[in-house]
Amino acid sequence: MKRLLRQLLPFASLLALIVLLAALEPEKFLTGSNFLNVLRRSSVNGIIALGMTAIIISGGIDLSVGSLLALAGMVGALVIQAAGPEWGALAGTFAGIGAGALCGLVNGLVITRLGLPPFIITLGSMSVFRGVAYVMHDGQPYNVPDYRFLGEGVVFGIPVSVILFVALALLAFLALRYTRLGRYTYAIGSNRDAAFHAGVRIERSLLALYALTGTLAGIAAMIGTSRTVSAQPTAGIGMELDVIAAVVIGGASLSGGSGTILGTVIGTLLIAFLRNGCTLLGISTNVQLIVIGVIIVAAVALDKAAQRRKA
């Protein structure tokens, strides 16, 4: 019951926003192509937010996802170019995802081995990954003009990236709810010492979470690379904030132990529709920043207030 109520708040805001936009700009907003467009744009952030949700539930945070995305994209694009037209797309896609997984694994290893706060470690790796992405090609992008399927491909009228987002969200939902790793994630975030004394393998679980998030960021990187048919070393700057915001708007607590995939998906869509609405209404991207910032604080404040009333 209570949990339902907490879920309802972001969902209701999302609905309200859609209704509002539909009323203000019915011709431009209420079209199938606009909706698909919003979904397609939210897929990159959304896929990363799935992993971020688990990390935040475990009481951690990953600030490096934006840089990781850039690095994975660069590696993927490099391999696409190097492997030639026949196998390049396939090899590059897997190379990019693999690079993401590897970076995530490194994050996880350093965090568990050094026992330092994830905030500090990923603040560092954020800088390192970005640096490597720049160094790889002297700050230049890799262009991959024929790499189009992930970004522009359409299956049964639905963009491939949207299908991927939905499928991965479903998987993440199942993993958090129906696997031991999912349950351990909540336990670690709620009380790490208690989880340890109940037999939870803390390090192994955290390692898995950071590696999985890296993998998801790798997938997102290849979608992004495909959309712009190039890999930019500047990709994903500031993205970590959008992703964390989506998770938090979705009801997760930064102190760990709570959060859901459904909430995060709603949070991601909320931000995406907000952006879309602002654009349709002719509000500049600079003002959008202000609007989104205010919404984040309001959402979290509302959520806190609702919690307090129940206590």
Binding site: L174, R177, Y178, T179, R180, R183, Y186, A187, S190, N191, D193, A194, A195, F196, H197, A198, G199, V200, G257, S258
Partner: peptide, 30 residues
């Protein structure tokens, strides 16, 4: 401190060390 995950459901606290027993093919039977 070392016993309960206070923010989580009572049931989850009870089953935490016994989860392998409720797992089939990698999935928990809730």
């Amino acid at each position: 401190r070392t016993g309960l995950c206070l923010g989580l459901p009572c049931g989850w606290n009870i089953t935490l060390p016994s989860l392998p027993r409720f797992t089939r093919a990698g999935f928990l039977s809730l």
